Amino acid sequence: MRAGQLYVGDELVDPERIYRVAGSDWELDSYGGYTDPAWELKPTYDMPTILPEALEAYVTLQKRISLPVMGRLG
């Protein structure tokens, strides 16, 4: 978004073209503030995995690391 207009890279979005994008409902529906209801977007969502579940799976697979304590807590 620049000056109220939607760009893909350095080019204005072409209303005659179909774009495939990834985003959440917050980003693609008008209540998130990134789209204008006048655009009449009709997003469809494919949600085989819920984000917290994906994050949990990723974090679980990571090797544990130790960080030095730089001070006292409490």
Results as ranks from 00 to 15, higher is better:
residue 1 M to V: 12
residue 1 M to N: 07
residue 1 M to H: 09
residue 1 M to T: 12
residue 2 R to D: 09
residue 2 R to A: 09
residue 2 R to W: 10
residue 3 A to T: 03
residue 4 G to H: 13
residue 4 G to E: 10
residue 5 Q to V: 03
residue 6 L to N: 05
residue 6 L to Y: 10
residue 6 L to W: 12
residue 6 L to R: 07
residue 9 G to V: 01
residue 9 G to P: 00
residue 9 G to R: 02
residue 10 D to T: 11
residue 10 D to S: 07
residue 11 E to Q: 12
residue 11 E to H: 11
residue 12 L to A: 06
residue 12 L to E: 03
residue 12 L to W: 03
residue 13 V to R: 14
residue 13 V to Y: 13
residue 14 D to A: 00
residue 15 P to W: 00
residue 17 R to W: 02
residue 18 I to L: 01
residue 19 Y to H: 06
residue 19 Y to G: 01
residue 19 Y to C: 00
residue 19 Y to W: 05
residue 20 R to P: 00
residue 20 R to I: 07
residue 21 V to C: 06
residue 22 A to R: 12
residue 23 G to W: 03
residue 23 G to R: 04
residue 24 S to K: 07
residue 24 S to Q: 06
residue 25 D to S: 11
residue 25 D to Q: 15
residue 26 W to T: 15
residue 26 W to E: 14
residue 26 W to I: 06
residue 27 E to Y: 05
residue 28 L to T: 07
residue 28 L to C: 07
residue 29 D to W: 00
residue 29 D to P: 00
residue 30 S to E: 12
residue 30 S to D: 14
residue 30 S to R: 06
residue 32 G to L: 01
residue 32 G to A: 02
residue 33 G to R: 07
residue 34 Y to E: 02
residue 34 Y to H: 03
residue 35 T to S: 08
residue 35 T to D: 04
residue 36 D to P: 03
residue 38 A to D: 12
residue 38 A to S: 13
residue 39 W to H: 09
residue 39 W to N: 04
residue 40 E to N: 15
residue 40 E to K: 12
residue 41 L to P: 10
residue 41 L to A: 13
residue 42 K to M: 03
residue 42 K to Q: 14
residue 42 K to P: 00
residue 43 P to E: 11
residue 44 T to I: 13
residue 44 T to G: 13
residue 44 T to N: 14
residue 44 T to H: 15
residue 45 Y to T: 03
residue 45 Y to K: 07
residue 46 D to T: 09
residue 47 M to Y: 09
residue 47 M to P: 02
residue 47 M to R: 15
residue 48 P to C: 08
residue 48 P to K: 08
residue 49 T to Y: 14
residue 50 I to G: 10
residue 51 L to H: 15
residue 51 L to G: 14
residue 52 P to D: 08
residue 52 P to Q: 08
residue 52 P to Y: 10
residue 52 P to N: 11
residue 52 P to W: 12
residue 53 E to S: 08
residue 53 E to A: 06
residue 53 E to M: 04
residue 55 L to K: 12
residue 55 L to P: 04
residue 55 L to V: 14
residue 56 E to Y: 08
residue 56 E to F: 07
residue 56 E to A: 11
residue 57 A to V: 09
residue 58 Y to D: 02
residue 58 Y to N: 02
residue 60 T to R: 13
residue 60 T to L: 03
residue 61 L to P: 00
residue 61 L to Q: 10
residue 61 L to M: 04
residue 61 L to R: 11
residue 62 Q to S: 08
residue 62 Q to A: 07
residue 62 Q to N: 06
residue 63 K to V: 05
residue 63 K to T: 10
residue 65 I to P: 01
residue 65 I to L: 09
residue 66 S to D: 10
residue 66 S to G: 06
residue 68 P to V: 10
residue 68 P to H: 08
residue 68 P to T: 14
residue 69 V to Q: 09
residue 70 M to P: 04
residue 70 M to I: 10
residue 71 G to I: 05
residue 72 R to Q: 04
residue 73 L to Y: 14
